[in-house]
Design a protein around this nucleic acid. Sequence first.
DNA 1: GACCAGGCACATC
DNA 2: GATGTGCATGGT
Length: 233
Amino acid sequence: MKKCKLDKTFLLEVYHRLYRHLGPSHWWPAETPLEVAVGAILTQNVSWNNVEKAISHLKAKGLLEAEKLYRVSLEELEVLLKPVGFYRVKAKRLKAFIEHLCRFHGGSLENLFRIPLEEARRELLSISGIGPETADAILCYAGGYPIMVMDAYTRRVFHRLGCWSEKISYGEMQDCFLKALPVDVELYREFHALIDILAKSICKKKPLCSRCPLEDLCLQGKTEDHSPLTNRR
DNA sequence: GACCAGGCACATC
DNA sequence: GATGTGCATGGT
């Protein structure tokens, strides 16, 4: 059975509307690929505001280098990551990522990004604390690989547009997008960013409201789901 | 004070 | 395989 009703024309229409209303997004806000990767791990289920504080702490300590993050103790890292929330978990996950990077790639993201997409993705997913969304964010925004990040916002927004079931899996969503869209990293980066910005700003309270640039685009008429576009259970 | 924020791992059924 | 729960701070 077909899992989604997305096609190239529809998706590009959505993209162009979002870009006209909300773009350019200037995602991912970071100075280096490592900062992107650190941000991707830290932002799991927390607001970006909190992540920025923690990243500025790391910068102030001169720790935004793989070698230095490798040497810093878990306890010290926990203190620096306090503003993020879930700081014990995040410190452990960041350490696991850095240790992998140092052990297998000489602490160089450039080395990791030399290997083919599928292999790099498998490798990232093998690290404890790196799931599909985090792996894809690192690959797309830091590595420049042609892969698009999916998330709870993407699921919700396109569910409300009548494109798929709310139960659709991460992989199924990603297949739909990648099959329909041209291979274009910049498009993938901006599209994901715009979906998140849409969900968090204009359509936060009542999705597909009159201020939403996608209001008239529903494939199956309006859904009855008007709960907030959150990631929460 | 309640709710939410750019997930993931693990336990349980 | 599907579902529930812990992780924790900061802004609104």
